Amino acid sequence: MPEIGRVVKVLRGKDEGSYAVIVQVLDDRFVLVADGDKRRFDQSKKKNVLHLLMQPVVSHEVADSMRETGRVTNAKLRYAIQKAVQGKGE
């Protein structure tokens, strides 16, 4: 189930194969994702959840920041993705 702060792998589109973090859940089909690098928070991408592979990692730093301020820094997004990818051993 998509939730704010969950790390995802993009399966379709221009960003295919890259990792991102869900920054907003729009409805049961669409979410906004950002990676803090090529896809910054201010220009997050609307993605269909069917085109995303949900990873078992949820970044609590990102979720807490979104809950408290409604924003998250790009550095936090990059850190969350880096931590998730290193944890998988890739």
Results as ranks from 00 to 15, higher is better:
3 E>N: 10
3 E>Y: 07
3 E>F: 07
4 I>H: 00
6 R>H: 04
9 K>Y: 00
10 V>R: 03
12 R>H: 10
15 D>Q: 07
15 D>E: 10
16 E>Q: 14
17 G>Y: 05
18 S>W: 11
19 Y>S: 01
20 A>Y: 01
20 A>R: 05
20 A>D: 04
21 V>Q: 02
23 V>A: 09
25 V>G: 09
26 L>D: 14
26 L>G: 10
26 L>V: 15
27 D>V: 05
30 F>D: 06
34 A>K: 01
34 A>S: 01
35 D>S: 02
37 D>K: 15
38 K>G: 14
38 K>L: 12
39 R>S: 09
42 D>T: 11
43 Q>S: 14
43 Q>M: 12
45 K>N: 10
46 K>I: 01
46 K>F: 00
46 K>G: 01
49 V>C: 07
50 L>S: 14
52 L>R: 07
53 L>T: 03
53 L>W: 08
53 L>F: 03
57 V>I: 12
60 H>F: 11
61 E>C: 04
63 A>C: 10
63 A>F: 04
63 A>R: 14
63 A>N: 09
64 D>V: 11
64 D>P: 02
64 D>Q: 13
65 S>F: 03
65 S>H: 06
66 M>H: 00
66 M>K: 00
66 M>V: 06
67 R>G: 10
67 R>W: 11
67 R>L: 15
68 E>D: 10
68 E>V: 10
69 T>F: 03
71 R>W: 13
72 V>N: 02
72 V>H: 02
75 A>P: 06
76 K>D: 11
77 L>A: 02
77 L>F: 02
77 L>N: 01
79 Y>Q: 14
79 Y>A: 13
84 A>G: 07
85 V>L: 09
86 Q>N: 15
86 Q>C: 13
